[in-house]
């Protein structure tokens, strides 16, 4: 699958336009030298250019999808201590972007009470905070902060056949909330750079572009997050075949019942694919309909 096909799958291909008037902030490991930046903050003391082959692709992807958008970058080291990451979010908030792309995170499950998640919630009052769910799947409880926060949009991944990508992190959060919120394709081929991009880090920019477009029409970040969830296309997730419990010995039934109760939570489709596949076209359409007429 090419990037073009991935954009078509999430109905972003014909909706993107140029992204004029959109402001997108990226918190990542650096920028691409061949894509423009409107502003940047460097928290590493090194060159702004990416050396991790990560931030540069996130930057290029967003520029490719929204060539007219104003893109801002906060460069952070990898790995980044949480207090530096909070500074990065604080710097990103100053630009008042429509959406913030965060393709970094921890895989330690939280209940949203950790400082990074709390600050992400604060940032979500200003911008749509779009976070990669992480690549800790299929282990349950593998979505960490800031994707665990209540107000951020956690983006998981589906493979090229639009089925759940096995390594996409799964919910629930420690306090039992469903995560991720939506999913977008990963593993697509970025033709211009002859590169295949794999991981939730590269499914997140697709959602960020959609969020920025919608938020530029209707600047209410929490509502945009909800619109992106509600317009997502359902994905069929094959759950465990429960037929195996037939013939279970009566003595083993308590253990099987305990296992099934755990499966009810961890194998809930909403903890694998959230509300479904990103549907940028419908989300942007809904945002434009809800936008106040001038």
């Amino acid at each position: 699958m090419s990037l073009r096909q991935a954009l078509d799958a999430v109905r972003l291909l014909d909706r993107a336009g140029g992204g004029e008037g959109c402001r997108v902030a990226i918190i990542d490991t650096g920028s691409a030298e061949d894509a423009p930046l409107k502003g940047h903050v460097n928290l590493t003391g090194k060159s702004l250019a990416d050396t991790e082959a990560h931030g540069e692709y996130v930057h290029r992807l967003i520029h490719k999808i929204l060539p007219e958008a104003e893109i801002y970058m906060v460069k952070v080291p990898n790995p980044v201590p949480d207090y530096v990451f909070i500074t990065a979010m604080h710097e990103a908030m100053k630009w008042r972007p429509h959406a913030v792309n965060i393709s970094m995170g921890s895989e330690i499950a939280t209940d949203g009470g950790d400082p990074v998640s709390i600050y992400a919630d604060r940032l979500a009052a200003v911008s749509v905070v779009v976070c990669a769910a992480g690549n800790g799947g299929p282990r349950p409880l593998s979505v960490g902060s800031p994707a665990c926060s209540r107000e951020s949009l956690a983006v998981g991944a589906v493979n090229l056949r639009l089925r759940p990508w096995s390594s996409s992190s799964r919910g629930p959060t420690l306090d039992g909330r469903f995560k991720p919120d939506i999913v977008a394709p990963t593993g697509y081929f970025f033709e211009e750079f002859e590169t295949r991009l794999t991981g939730t880090s590269f499914s997140t920019p697709l959602a960020t572009a959609a969020a920025a477009l919608a938020a530029s029409l209707l600047p209410r970040p929490r509502l945009i997050k909800r619109l992106l969830q509600l317009t997502a296309q359902p994905i069929q997730v094959s759950l465990v075949n429960l037929a195996f419990i037939r013939g279970v010995q009566p003595t083993a039934r308590p253990a099987v019942n305990k296992l099934l109760r755990a499966l009810m939570v961890t194998a809930d489709p909403r903890n694998i694919v959230g509300m479904g596949l990103l549907n940028a076209g419908d989300a942007i359409k809904e945002a434009s309909q809800l936008a106040p007429r001038s």
Partner: peptide, 11 residues
Amino acid sequence: VSLSVGGRRRC
């Protein structure tokens, strides 16, 4: 805690 790109299965 520390945050990073990728995680267990690096992107």
